[in-house]
Computed example of a mutant assay.
Amino acid sequence: MEPTIDETDPPLPPVIEAAWGLRERAPKGPRPGLTLAGIVAAAVAVADAEGLGAVSMSRVAKELGAGTMALYRYVGAKEELLTLMVDAAYGEPPGPGGTGPDWRAGLARWSWAERAALQRHPWVVRVPISGPPLTPHTLGWLEDGLRCLDGTGLTGAEKMSVMLLLTGYVRNEALLMAQVQEASAASGRRMDETMAEYSRLVARVADPGRFPALHAVIAAGVLERDDDPDDEFVFGLDRLLDGIEALVTSRAAG
């Protein structure tokens, strides 16, 4: 089914036209050997290898053996390139998974899949969010998540809020883990060594009379353990799904 077009609708941004293949050809004529997909793939490879800060139009052009101005025939600005890179990094969505009574398993599968995508391309969480998802892959991920909630009795607004809650949690956890790993690598120490030192430093500066709860945690040895990141992710995700399940149950009872 073709999407409906209203003459009063705002025009599509050029980057969205490019993402959906709505440009017949590159402006001013394409350069032989260059494609939009190839440009995006080269930019993603640079970000994967060296981080987001290494990505520039000139650097990507160099990787492709082209002049910088040739890229502007396909991508209007670096910001547009970043949008296309994020869409490519997410890739194909995981599929809707469970629906109805299996909605929880479906959303868990969706969340783990998004986390895996962000772990493959950790720079994605450092790209500023300029608006709601509108590129092909990001809309596909949203569609799959919403379909997991079919049959739950939640309203459309509640379903969208659930997806915002989950993706916010996954993105924040991915960013936190990336920053922790970067800090550990920069210090040249293992995470268990870093946490053990942190525990000792906290004990030195935090007065037990003012921070009794924190000292109880220190005494239990919690800060000296290098917990499995998967365990932390499971804990947070389960608490979110517990809350969503309470809402679904209340809708069924009401």
Rank of each mutant, 00 (worst) to 15 (best):
T8Q: 13
D9K: 06
V15H: 05
I16Q: 08
A19H: 02
W20Q: 07
E24I: 14
E24Q: 14
R25S: 14
A26G: 12
K28C: 10
G29P: 00
R31Y: 12
R31L: 12
P32R: 15
A37Q: 14
G38L: 03
I39S: 03
A43T: 04
A43P: 02
V44R: 03
V46S: 03
A47I: 01
L52K: 01
E63K: 10
G65L: 07
G67P: 02
M69H: 15
M69E: 13
A70H: 08
V75W: 01
V75R: 02
A77Y: 00
L84I: 03
A88R: 13
G91P: 05
P93G: 13
P93F: 07
G95D: 08
P96L: 06
P96G: 09
T99M: 05
G100I: 04
P101Q: 06
W103I: 01
R104V: 10
A105P: 08
L107E: 01
R115E: 09
R115T: 04
A116Q: 13
L118H: 00
Q119F: 04
H121T: 05
P122L: 03
W123A: 01
V124H: 02
V125D: 00
V127L: 00
P128Y: 04
I129G: 07
I129L: 06
P133I: 09
P133D: 05
T135R: 11
P136Q: 09
P136L: 05
T138L: 06
W141M: 02
L142H: 08
E143G: 15
R147H: 10
T152D: 02
G156F: 02
E158K: 05
E158Q: 15
M160Y: 12
V162K: 01
L164T: 00
L165D: 07
L166C: 05
R171Y: 06
R171E: 10
A174H: 03
L175I: 00
A178S: 14
Q179M: 11
Q181W: 07
E182P: 03
A183S: 14
S184N: 11
A185M: 11
G188Q: 11
R190D: 11
D192M: 11
A196Q: 13
E197D: 14
S199P: 07
R200K: 15
L201Y: 14
F211S: 03
A213Q: 13
L214Y: 06
A216L: 13
V217E: 12
V217H: 09
I218T: 13
A219R: 15
A219H: 14
L223R: 10
E224P: 14
R225D: 12
D226Y: 13
D227F: 15
P229T: 04
G236T: 09
D238C: 10
L241R: 04
E245G: 12
E245V: 08
L247K: 06
R251C: 09
A252V: 08
